[in-house]
Simulated assay, not measured.
Amino acid sequence: MSDHITDPASHAHDFEMNAEVATGPSLSYWQLVRKRFARNRTGVIGAIICCAIIFTALCAPFLAPYTPATKDRSAIYTPPQMPRFIAQDGGLTRPYVLGFAEEMHPVTYEITFQPSPEKRVDLALFVQGPEYQFLGMNFTTHFIGGAKGAPVHFLGTDGLGRDVFSRMLYGSRITLLMGMIVMGMACVIGTLVGVTSGYLGGRTDTVIQRVIEFVKSFPDLPLYLALVAVLPRRADPMLTFVMFAAIVVVLKWADLARELRGKVIAIRSVEFVRAAVAVGASDKRIIGRHIIPNMSSHIIVWATYVLPEVILLESFLSFLGVGIQQPMVSWGVMLNAVRDFQSLASAPWLLAPVGMIILSVLAFNALGDGLRDAMDPYSHD
């Protein structure tokens, strides 16, 4: 990835000079970045989708009609109930869904579901439903649901009668939380190690680089599986979550540290850093005021690329059953229920989290591409 990300902060002055000639008033570096990013349609769309996904995760208890553990024994493997706006007579009506009538094939004994107009359920906003906690307080109001408490399952139900749509919204919280934790910790560790290695040099740099090479010498996937396999199977789900996040952090920080080390070596020889050393500035001030700010754009872009990688990794390992464990809900845990062809054939709507995974990965990658182009002063509009 280091081949594709250009660190522009050290060339901010040239960037501002070119912009002043082209646009008139001189703008700061970050103002120019914001202006260039706003012209990138793909990046803006990606940013909007990313914000929507994060908002959905934060407000999942309110947006979801049910809690992830709510079960409806009378609606096992029920197909999705898509909202309708056209009445039977062809006119427009308030949004509603249709319930299903079960029919059994006389020969194969296969149960099929047919929409029944007699089981119409009108949709309503701000309905009362199962109790949930949000910001430490208990609530029973949900954004959308069936009028008068009638059951509604927009994306169907699973083998235990749990609402797939609600579980997918709750699952976004665990999946994104895993990504954010790994991204944040890897950024902190990678930045500290990379800056230390590049700035101090000498024996310290040699030792740190040998450690990084040792970490990067292991093949990622087999090492993930081997490390996760040693996690206690009967451990608390939260403990498993923390240990899983720690394992991923250990294997992600080395890439950033190696990239930043090379940039620090280049930055410490430029004029403003040498001038700071000449006037007697401390190492702490040089690193905090000159070196790290000039690498901030690279760190930001790296973070937007590593987040979708962690989302894919968590979903894949949880799908295999070696990642997040029940009763915690993530997109990968939901996909774990359709590992066999029989479940997939009888309830293909259980693959709905795949759509969220694809959407989030594409959105964060689009955001990363937009930020990379906006922060590169030598890229062409």
Score class of each variant (00 low, 15 high):
M1P: 15
I5L: 11
T6L: 11
P8Y: 03
A9H: 05
H13R: 15
E16T: 09
E16Y: 04
A19M: 13
A19N: 08
A19F: 08
V21A: 11
P25C: 00
L27M: 14
L32S: 01
A38H: 14
A38Y: 14
R41C: 02
V44P: 13
I48F: 14
C50D: 01
I53D: 06
T56V: 10
A57P: 12
P61C: 02
F62P: 11
P65M: 00
Y66P: 07
D72S: 13
P80W: 01
P83Y: 00
R84L: 11
F85A: 02
I86Q: 10
A87C: 05
A87S: 15
Q88A: 11
L92I: 10
T93A: 09
P95G: 00
P95W: 05
G99K: 03
G99E: 01
G99T: 03
F100S: 08
T108H: 07
Y109K: 13
Y109D: 10
E110T: 13
E110S: 06
I111Y: 11
F113V: 02
S116A: 08
R120C: 05
D122S: 11
F134K: 09
F134N: 05
T141E: 08
K148R: 15
G149L: 06
H153D: 04
G156W: 06
T157N: 05
D158N: 12
G161Q: 04
R162E: 01
M168E: 03
L177G: 15
M178N: 11
M178P: 11
G179Q: 03
M180C: 14
A186M: 06
V188Q: 01
I189H: 10
G190K: 08
L192C: 10
L192R: 13
S197A: 14
G198M: 03
G198I: 01
Y199P: 09
G201N: 03
G201M: 06
G202Y: 06
D205R: 07
T206P: 08
I208Y: 09
R210C: 04
V211I: 15
P219Y: 01
L227I: 07
P232F: 00
A235R: 09
A235I: 10
T240H: 11
F241M: 12
V242T: 02
M243C: 15
F244D: 02
F244N: 07
A245Q: 10
I247N: 07
V250K: 00
A254H: 04
D255H: 11
L256V: 13
E259V: 15
L260M: 10
V264A: 04
I267A: 04
V273D: 03
R274D: 05
A275V: 10
G280P: 13
K284H: 13
I287K: 05
R289E: 10
R289K: 13
R289L: 12
S296N: 09
S297Y: 01
I300L: 14
V301R: 06
V306C: 04
E309F: 13
V310E: 07
L312T: 07
L313D: 08
L313S: 15
S315V: 05
F316C: 03
V322F: 10
Q325Y: 03
P327D: 04
G332I: 09
G332V: 08
V338D: 01
S343P: 14
L344A: 11
A345V: 08
A347E: 02
L350G: 01
A352P: 14
P353F: 03
P353E: 00
M356T: 14
L359W: 09
S360P: 12
A363R: 06
A366P: 14
G368D: 03
D369I: 02
P377V: 00
D381S: 12
